[in-house]
Simulated assay, not measured.
Amino acid sequence: MSLFGASGHGKVILDILQSTGQSVDVVYDDYPKQPSLLEVPIVPASTLDSVKIDSLILSIGNNKVRKRLAKKLNVTFANAIHPSAILSKHIAIGEGTVVMAGVKVNPDAVIGKHCILNTGAIVEHDCKIGDFAHLSPGVALAGNVTVGEGTHVGIGSCVIQGITIGKWVTIGAGAVIIKDVPDYAVVVGNPGKIIKYNLQDE
């Protein structure tokens, strides 16, 4: 097992893997700033082309960068799921997705590829999370919520049942979402209000 990305986010994923007894051989990074991460060696990402990798997790928090690398790298992508996460057996989780401590996912939820379900996030029944999305710590999605590709839901945000959030949306920390959100919108506050739109360059 290998990781790509030696940031703080990578440290959390590495800790999850180590806590479940999985061996991580190396962490790749474009610009290594230290020799190791939790005692695992960090090497330049440029060496990826010269080695055979059994499985890899993109341990990068930036949703657009994860998407770009997922398309570029011809490897098998693995998942990391913290042992304290409570996951219904009636869910689907795509490759490359990471599920952190205290996450709860209820029946018939569908989680896409290369998503981040961060510490303590709650995904209720029948939710659909698009590829490359990130639910920050403490996010709570009620039932039947849809979150589009690449969307980042900020720490402590809440979304009421039945809401659809578009692709590449940014939901600010602590926002309360009570109506649908269009693609690329940036939403803050309680109740959530659109303040601008992200660039459509994903």
Rank of each mutant, 00 (worst) to 15 (best):
V139Q: 00
I86Q: 12
N190R: 14
K11S: 15
A78P: 09
A70Y: 07
Q34Y: 12
S23G: 11
I116N: 00
A109M: 11
S36M: 04
L73V: 11
S88Y: 10
V103G: 10
G21W: 11
S46E: 07
A101R: 09
V176K: 14
E202M: 02
G21V: 12
I165Y: 02
G61R: 04
S55T: 13
L14W: 11
V147F: 03
P35R: 13
H82Q: 10
W168R: 10
I86R: 12
I155D: 04
L135D: 00
D25A: 15
S136G: 05
S2W: 04
K196Y: 09
E124C: 06
D29L: 08
H9V: 03
S55C: 08
P44W: 03
Q22R: 14
V169I: 14
L117D: 04
A80D: 06
G192K: 02
D201E: 07
K128P: 00
G96T: 03
D201C: 02
V181K: 00
V145I: 07
I42S: 12
V110D: 03
V147A: 04
C115Y: 00
L14R: 10
L48T: 12
V139H: 00
A78G: 12
G112K: 01
L48V: 13
K52Q: 09
I155M: 14
K11A: 15
H9R: 07
G156Q: 11
A45M: 09
V139E: 00
G162T: 12
H114M: 09
L58Y: 04
V40T: 15
I91T: 11
A142V: 09
D54K: 15
K113P: 07
H82M: 10
T164M: 08
N190V: 15
V105A: 07
N106R: 09
V12C: 05
K128C: 10
I13L: 12
C158I: 11
V43G: 02
K72Q: 15
G150H: 03
I122E: 03
L73M: 14
I165Q: 03
Y28N: 04
I171V: 15
V26R: 02
K89S: 15
A45Q: 09
G130M: 10
H125Q: 05
H82T: 08
L56N: 08
A142G: 13
F132M: 08
V65A: 13
N118R: 03
A173Q: 14
V43N: 04
R68K: 15
H90G: 01
V169G: 06
